[in-house]
């Protein structure tokens, strides 16, 4: 039971950050983007053309920008949690089960 609680608390903290804090993140360019702008190679960036579900952490079809980011954060945290558990199961030492 205690084990269950810690995992739930940890996941809740991640969700709170991903859902409630993410809309307030700075929209300034990050270090690499800043250098690319300053040094004039930002134009080299191209769209991979890869069909994405939630490009740039903005859930499609949601007009409210903050809500679109929150939804993206919610989905990202859950997908990452599930994916990392699946990866953990795939790589764990078999005898330790």
């Amino acid at each position: 039971m205690e084990k269950f609680n810690s995992i739930v608390v940890g996941l809740l903290i991640a969700l709170i950050i991903g859902v409630f804090l993410s809309p307030f993140a700075s929209s300034f360019p990050d270090g690499l983007e800043r250098v690319a702008e300053d040094k004039g190679f930002i134009k080299s960036a191209v769209d991979s053309g890869f069909p994405s579900l939630i490009a740039d952490y903005t859930f499609p079809g949601v007009e409210n920008e903050k809500l679109a980011t929150s939804l993206a954060g919610f989905i990202g945290v859950i997908v990452t949690f599930v994916a990392a558990i699946a990866v953990g199961k795939a790589v764990a030492r078999k005898e330790s089960r």
Binding site: K3, I7, G10, L11, I13, A14, L15, I17, G18, L21, S22, A25, S26, S27, F28, D30, Y57, T69, G73, G76, V77, I78, T80, F81, V82, A83, A84, I85, V87, G88, K89, A92
Partner: peptide, 20 residues
């Protein structure tokens, strides 16, 4: 350690969204 791996990954994903 599998559940912890899940939580840490989820936390890092969320924290990476928060540009300061």
């Amino acid at each position: 350690k599998i559940p912890l791996m899940g939580v840490i990954a989820a936390f890092i994903f969320a924290a990476q969204m928060i540009n300061f």
